[in-house]
Nucleic acid binder design. Sequence first.
DNA 1: GCTTCCCGCCACACA
DNA 2: TGTGTGGCGGGAAGC
Length: 903
Amino acid sequence: MFALSDQIPRNNHTTLLPYLNLLPHNLTTTTTPPPPPQDETSIANLVLKSDPQTLTTALQNHPVQWTPELVTRVLKRLWNHGPKALQFFKTLDRHHSYTHSSAAFDHAVDIAARLRDYKSLWTLVASMQTRRLGPTPKTFAIITERYVASGKPDRAVKIFLSMHHHGCPQDLNSFNTILDVLCKSKRVEKAYSLLKIFRGRFRADTVSYNIIANGFCLIKRTPKALEVLKEMVERGLNPSLITYNILLKGFFRAGQIKEAWEFFLEMKNRKCEIDVVTYTTVVHGFGVVGEVKKARKVFDEMIGKGVLPSVATHNALIQVLCKKDSVENAIAVFEEMLRKGYVPNSTTYNVVIRGLCHAGKMDMAMEYVHRMKNDECEPNVQTYNLVIRYYCEAGEIDKGLEVFEKMGSGDCLPNLDTYNILISATFVRKKSDDLMVAGKLLIEMVNRGFLPRKFTFNRVLNGLLLTGNQGFAKEILRLQSKCGRLPRHLECYCFFSLWNRNLSGHQLVILKPTVYVLHRMELLLRRYRKEETFIPVLKVKDEMDVTLIQVPTYSIVHELPIGFQNVIVCYLSFYGLTSIFLSLYNQGNVETIGLDDAATRLGVERRRIYDIVNVLESVGVLARKAKNRYSWKGFGGVPKTLQQLREEGLRENFNTFNGNNYVKVNNRKEKSLGLLTQNFVKLFLCSNVDLISLEEAAKILLGDAHDPSMMRTKVRRLYDIANVLSSMNFIEKTHHPKTRKPAFRWLGTRGKSDNGSANTSVLNESKKRIFGTEITNTSFKRTKVVSTIDENSNQITKTHLQMLVKCEDLENEVDKSNFEQDLRHSSKNFQFGPFAPVTVSVSKFGATQNSTVKQVHDWESLASTYRPQYHNQALRDLFVHYVEAWKSWCSEVAGKNPIQLIS
DNA sequence: GCTTCCCGCCACACA
DNA sequence: TGTGTGGCGGGAAGC
């Protein structure tokens, strides 16, 4: 990582990574003897070795004079083992002759926040207050920064606004801090609006505006940054050199090299006192885009102008040479820098080491790592990470692990990146042993307070299952559950398992997405029960940090026919909204559609419906009658609409992709989703392109405007449209054969007639045809639910889905007695959730195909066929493993408190 | 770290 | 002026 740290107005309060600030300590020339400097290492190791019971006595007996400085150093050393660090802090808090300083408290607060242990955090804050040690503005800087980092910016703002309740009134500095925290996490708009609201109250200054401008530069929105600059001048605040440097760097970052250079010249013209930061920015900026010569020239020029390059400038040049030139030249600069008497910092070494690694000179790289030690510039975690990464990339995983072992036993603890790098590497060789290592690393990282991503967990779990380590996989699954990182489907499954155990009245901690699914489910259930009034079944409260669900006192699921439960869960995961929409209204007897009705029936907000109807309207499936009302035209008229669009498109030159065929966007109407849909369709209709990616489409439709934010918006809209169109089978999602990038293919007029889902026929057929049921191998949304049966899949899936569509009617046909019989009948071998084993044979369903509702009464079969299913065999097997692992684990812990399973 | 998708704010449109 | 519409961007999930 390249740190141009002196270029950005750094906020004094925010010290996220205290260990980076560790000063190199000199073992031989220490002038202030007690405590001896190696003490923090030995103490840290002592803490790492002791368990909570022995730690107290170990610390009491340790022959050392405890001072706040020593404690701070130990905490820094233990930084990457949060739980141990907190334990150390808490144990020492009870020491008879030592009391913690404010700085030590801040570290503890930081560590607790990083562990997302908010209870400890606020206890520490309260403790600070009672001891009159704070909380200080710095404490709040830490807290807000951590809240923002864990995705809670609103909470952070609230905390800032309530600082004074903790005895720490807000001032301009703390205001700037919160702005900075928001900007650094790319929430610039939020920061900007906060500035607008409070600039009067806190007397926003140049620094405040610099922070916002820098924020916009970080997200490559230089025009907006310039706007901020303008506003700042209008408010009578003078931009400083820092302001100009921010903008200069912003131009380079956004790839506006020409603008950057002009800006730099302008700075010179205006007789700005250009400083070393400016030059460093230019050197780095040119270098990054490969203009090494220019970078060099500027580097040489600055000396002539009397501005001495700093270590950061050298770092920039060295990095650039490593990346775009040769590592030899980079090392030459490095040596020259030493000759001139500069003292390289860890960044300098890391840049050189990365360059060597990149050039495949691993041995030489390691020499530099040793050289760092001798040069009193201890290798830091980044150094180790990059060496490990390159070893792993070169396939030498064992060497990577060796380095990892060394750092673990030494004085630099591995961080989240280290673990991620190593875990990723274990998948390369597909060896059972490697995956065992991955599992162990995963457990270790959790113990050290790092929260692996769901993706990491899933990969390790999959790997272990596929290499036959079922026992270990089970352990990982348990850990995954403990961390709240279960795969979504298992999460639901766990929830229902618990629910099924009559755990009424208990509180479970569940992840938010599940809550959303449950909300929707509740709506469907209410409809099923024909409830007119809203009776909340699931009481959900979104508390500070976790989402709690009150398990209802009765199980609504039990009221449903067996199998229907499964259907419901699948119903939600199977369909995109459009498909449900179409299946509800494409019944042959629907004439008008009320938007409110649609929203209620789909269990979504009105807003979602607008998008669907707009797209449907633009291809002629619907027509707007009045506000709130649409009439159903069906698919009969679609070919005609498409023909019209084609003619229109040819007139507008949509057959040539020269970027001139975009529609000039002036007002709201011309930006509408409907019009965009039509233009998108025209792209396919009027040209021979087979595949088009949404990015390409966006580029063409936008024309000359290549503003990245406009592009993003356009692509997002195209996703919305593409989803609706593919639900109707007008287009299908595939991958570009060469680039493997996602792209869309038009099926509408020349679809695949071999599997029956051809849209040529679709377009010509009567409106009775059920759209949204033509799902063959299309994977749906994120759940990858595909028919298990690949051959004949069309027919079978079609039948199944048609039946599913009719669930609506079927529900009503199941009379009470039937219903109860079902319940009794299957209460024994009751399979819950979407994970019931598939017992239905193909032939059984083949028979159902043309028959009536009666056979569909076999709810269980229907349901089990509809469980989420994976496309390929390996995944399918894996899925069974998941369920097995979960089941055996459940039975294992059946005697214990099942709440522990989740919460 | 990028792609994809969902959500809901808030501004505009329309009666 | 109130209610209906829908552009738009944040940000979470997925990979």
